[in-house]
Computed example of a mutant assay.
Amino acid sequence: MIRPLPALIAAVALATTASPAAAYWEYGHQTVAQIAEANVRPRTRIAIRALLARSDLLATPECKAATMAEASVWADCIKPLKDTDGKSRFGYAYAWHYQNVSICRPFDLTAPCKDGNCVSAQITRDVTLLKNKRAPMKDRVEALAFLIHFVGDVHQPLHAGDKDDKGGNDAKADYGLYGPARLNLHSIWDGYLAERAISTRPTLIRRYPAAVRTALAAGSVTDWSRESWQISHDAAYGSVLSDPCAPTPARLKLDDATIAKLVPVARLEVERGGLRLAKLLDSALG
């Protein structure tokens, strides 16, 4: 179950925590997962629940994954987990959440996805693992949890394209009246903007008509990556810079008019993420 935050509470929380992306971490990923759950075939839903019923195999009691909503944030929850010797248990997966393709050069996944260390490559890997019924159960459960999360990640534009600024984390920015020192372009798209976009009516969590599902879920993982990269150029950076590739000023400003224009862009990305996740799950499990 998603626990929506009123905008003011979300703003305060984001301004006062060390990780201002927390709102998208829960709200965005859970919404993508719940859209997918509402739109997969019944047989797929049964298969998903059967796999997640074995989430104990992940051996991460601190990070639950027994439902799609829980699994949608599992990949973030496990980041700080340590082995008994103090080493990171899942450090190898840090780079799997994004693919920072420069918005100022032609789209190319070759370098960002070297050795499979990017979000789109991992989505493809997870689908392949889920299709393989001979793979160990633990591996398939882990692949499902990662897949649910990573499809959400690739539809957050600043996980798909940037200006060599860590996905906008180095680009300080103000959001309307809010301009805490820790706020940056990435945290705005992860937090403030995501919260407003998802909580704007009508609800995004519903069964979509077949024609809409087909249209929004069309294309391949590479197509979706390119689309998200383009949105990063046109909307994430283009909404605050007349030339998205011009040097970024010391502080960007998203005024109310800009925010209003970006809300439908952010909503559509969440819808696409949910319906495309449903498509992949049907392909792998349905």
Rank of each mutant, 00 (worst) to 15 (best):
A111W: 05
R140I: 08
K172I: 10
R41D: 05
I2N: 03
R251W: 11
F150G: 10
A236Y: 09
A23Y: 15
R182N: 15
S228K: 13
N132C: 13
G167Q: 02
K279Q: 07
T67C: 02
D139P: 00
A38M: 03
Y237V: 14
A257F: 07
L280S: 00
P180N: 10
Y192Q: 15
V154L: 15
A22W: 01
R41Y: 02
G167N: 02
W189T: 15
A211R: 02
D170I: 01
A194V: 12
Y208S: 12
R140L: 15
V32L: 02
W74T: 08
A246M: 08
Q230P: 04
A211Q: 01
T124I: 12
A71E: 13
L147V: 04
E26W: 05
Y237D: 15
L5I: 04
D153A: 07
T17A: 00
L277A: 04
R213E: 12
W96M: 09
G168S: 04
R89A: 07
L177K: 14
L252H: 05
L254T: 12
L277Q: 04
A23Q: 03
A66P: 00
Y178A: 14
T258L: 12
Y178F: 15
N169D: 01
E142N: 02
V270A: 15
A36K: 09
G161M: 07
C118V: 07
A66R: 07
Y175C: 13
E62I: 07
H186R: 04
I259P: 03
K163G: 06
L51F: 00
G274V: 15
R226L: 15
R226C: 11
